[in-house]
């Protein structure tokens, strides 16, 4: 019962935040909607015993990434209203068709074909994703990918600095 109530709260917050991202006119409202979705997903991760992932979700996504987004929104300016007219013909119609197609395929798979999980339900004895358990898993089997992520983060930080630091001379229009 508690599970169901928690799921309803998480699902409504997440979907409302997601709709806010897509529909808000002001980019700051979009960012706030994304923040709500990320926090509710962190709750969902705790439900699935993924404690470390929930921590990282709050610290990295809700903390660092969203702060970065808000900074860039501040740099670019929020007061310019987005042009809502569509320049590509039939883009809206294609979007509706595409999402209908995806939903139709998913519905057919789910209701008509159905799928079964491999093996019995071990969710009750599923391992808890504590920092210790996850780091053992990561450093035992995924050492080289973990080190590669360090390289990737360094390269991306240097790349972002380079893009931001060297400003080209403005063209005269």
């Amino acid at each position: 019962m508690v599970d169901a109530v928690l799921f309803v709260i998480v699902a409504t917050t997440a979907v409302a935040g997601a709709l806010g991202v897509v529909m808000a006119r002001n980019p700051v409202y979009s960012a706030m909607g994304l923040l709500a979705t990320m926090f509710s997903l962190a709750v969902a991760y705790v439900v699935h015993l993924a404690h470390f992932v929930a921590f990282v979700q709050v610290i990295v996504y809700a903390g660092a990434v969203m702060t970065l987004f808000l900074f860039v929104i501040m740099l670019i300016g929020v007061d310019r209203s987005e042009d809502t007219s569509e320049s590509l013909p039939a883009q809206r119609l294609l979007v509706i068709l595409l999402t209908g197609l995806i939903a139709g395929i998913a519905g057919i798979l789910f209701f008509a074909v159905g799928f079964e999980w491999v093996g019995p339900d071990p969710a009750s004895l599923s391992p808890s994703g504590t920092i210790e358990a996850l780091s053992t898993e990561l450093f035992a089997g995924w050492l080289l990918p973990v080190l590669s992520t360090a390289l990737l983060l360094t390269i991306s930080a240097v790349g972002a600095l380079t893009l931001a630091y060297f400003r080209p001379t403005r063209r005269t229009p």
Partner: peptide, 30 residues
């Protein structure tokens, strides 16, 4: 991953998170 009973799903999430952070940094700079 929780349903199957492994930690592999959370390992995958870790890598997705790192790549997403790198992507956000470069993309916002662009």
């Amino acid at each position: 991953g929780h349903r199957i009973g492994t930690l592999d799903g959370q390992v995958a999430v870790f890598f997705v998170l790192v790549v997403a952070a790198a992507e956000v940094a470069v993309g916002l700079a662009i």
